[in-house]
Nucleic acid binder design. Structure first.
Lengths: 175, 175
DNA sequence: TATTAATTTCTGTTATGACTGAAACAACTG
DNA sequence: CAGTTGTTTCAGTCATAACAGAAATTAATA
């Protein structure tokens, strides 16, 4: 498959963005490609289209599957695995948030809790202790809020976003 | 300055988290250290405490200043620059969100807009076009929403977070 | 079961960027 | 202005992780 210049720009930029956020470039590129083409592709075709090694594609596809961002699909009369991703950006966003939260955010919360419970904690230094508590409390709140937001359906989240800063007025009504 | 084991754990873990999110490890460690100690530190002391090269600290401090995450402070009778960070996690969070948004999110929006306006765009492929539009629309909404949220004061954001999933009921009242 | 197709694993290479230590620079002090 | 202190720049080293290509493995077909 030959990508037109626009598709190339899209895929390449997505790869660069991935790098800046701690995502392997090829992984990000493959996902962008699958999103763009919008239909299942076999690994070989991805390899040719992106011009990277077959093994690289294989590992990246596995990574994307671990992230629940792509699915394997089969096509009648074709032995090969085909890969596809959701075309619903909201869903993709939610998956990424959920996965990153579980992999990196929640473990950090555990570490902070451990820190506060540790016998090595300097009980004298009340201020440092308070700051760790602050950080922990903040992350716990954010975590809980995130979980609840992830449960809402896209249309609801959309409404919330559209409301934007006006949310302030609503919150004030509660007082 | 000798860090007790808890402080070490905190700083080291923060460094690891930074790496996973595309932030240089030393940069993240220094910020964690300044947050933990809660008072201004000169570069030399940071160097000794973390056990890294002086030049590394110098560059990382500059990076943190570019991010508006630390401030230079002077102490009477001491020629050296001292560095300090806010102890308000909300403020720190907002700064990071704002900076990353401006550096990476907004430029991506520009690229997507360019893609859609490009004469190279394959006008035949309406579906691919629609997907790019979807992605762009999503990011634009998120961007606008982010800007407005960043303007709200912490207490307001706190309330919004505490409300959590119940926000759904409020949104339904609007219909 | 032999053959082919498809995928994964493994080993070595390469690219990137973090990091060091020395040297240069700048600012201050007596 | 010489000497001292403090900071930055720079060139080279090192660590990490991405990546390529070959070999090995697995699965399907005939």
């Amino acid at each position: 498959m030959i990508l037109n210049p626009v598709a190339q720009r899209f895929v390449l930029h997505w790869g660069e963005m991935g790098s800046k956020w701690g995502v392997n470039r090829t992984v990000a590129q493959i996902h962008a490609l699958l999103y763009f083409v919008g239909k299942p592709m076999p690994a070989d075709e991805i390899t040719e289209t992106l011009g990277v090694a077959r093994s690289n594609v294989s590992n990246s596809l596995k990574e994307l599957q671990n992230w629940n961002l792509i699915q394997v699909v089969h096509i009648m009369g074709d032995r090969r695995d085909h890969f596809t991703t959701s075309s619903d950006v909201w869903q993709l966003f939610k998956i990424v948030v959920k996965e990153r939260k579980e992999r990196e955010f929640d473990p950090t919360i555990s570490v902070l809790r451990d820190c506060l419970e540790s016998p090595d904690l300097d009980k004298e230094d009340k201020e440092a202790q308070a700051r760790i508590k602050e950080a922990l409390g903040f992350m716990e709140n954010l975590s809980q809020w995130g979980d609840q937001m992830l449960k809402l359906d896209p249309s609801c989240l959309m409404k919330l976003m559209k409301l934007g800063g006006k949310i302030k007025d609503f919150l004030n009504l509660l007082k």
